[in-house]
């Protein structure tokens, strides 16, 4: 059991690394397509809608398999399992973040945009200086929630052989046959990580409630 821990902690490390990188990419996707989804430009709006609908309308496991096995078979584009995993988690979380950004921006009173524009700021300047700073505060709990969801989603990357936490556990009990203890330990490690984030999220919510 004790000698399993270093391997599991290494798996946990990869889980965190993959989640953090993916979420950073997803934030960019979410911001850009979130802005598209509220734009007056029909084309941009349609692109954002289609993306969100496709990703939310298909299981993440299928998305992972499609990127790692489907794309190379269909297009000849090959990539490492790690790259495929990060792409899959990024585009999946990105779709949910588009909705979070859209809702967050829409929750800001229309008068804020009018006040910014009236002073002479362009649409982009008003977004950056006036709307987004307010919207992002309101989005923080939803961000943290998506972070937690994505942590759990990375366990599915075990199907393409990435040695994140779940895969690390599997490889250990495949050799020592102590599935009960190892999987319990894997579960505890996920729980501790996610519970810490939950507490952090509650703290953030309280903090920004006051501000």
């Amino acid at each position: 059991m004790i000698d399993a821990l270093p391997v599991l902690l290494k798996g946990l490390w990869w889980t965190v690394v993959i989640t953090v990188i993916s979420l950073l990419i997803a934030l960019v996707i979410g911001l850009v397509l979130g802005l598209c989804s509220i734009s007056r430009n029909k084309l941009l709006k349609t692109i954002a809608t289609i993306y969100v609908d496709i990703i939310r309308g298909t299981p993440i496991l299928v998305q992972i398999l499609f990127i790692y096995f489907g794309l190379p078979a269909g297009t000849g584009i090959t990539m490492s399992a790690l790259t495929a995993g990060i792409i899959a988690i990024s585009i999946n979380a990105g779709a949910y973040l588009v909705e979070i950004f859209r809702a967050g921006i829409n929750s800001i009173d229309k008068g804020q945009m009018e006040a910014g524009r009236t002073l002479g700021f362009s649409y982009g300047e008003t977004m950056r200086l006036i709307i987004l700073p307010q919207a992002v505060r309101r989005m923080i709990p939803a961000f943290v929630n998506q972070f937690i969801v994505s942590i759990k989603d990375t366990s599915l990357l075990s199907v393409i052989g990435i040695a994140e936490l779940t895969m690390s556990g599997q490889s250990i009990y495949a050799m020592n046959f102590r599935a009960f203890e190892i999987l319990a330990l894997v579960g505890i490690l996920y729980f501790v990580l996610i519970y810490a984030l939950t507490l952090f999220s509650r703290w953030l919510e309280r903090r920004f409630d006051v501000a």
């Binding site: 009173d109 008068g111 804020q112 006040a115 002479g120």
Partner: peptide, 20 residues
Amino acid sequence: INKMRQRLGMVFQQFNLFPH
């Protein structure tokens, strides 16, 4: 329009101050 609006100040019924 952005340049022209700089010459026109506007005050709203609902103030629309920036709360942050």
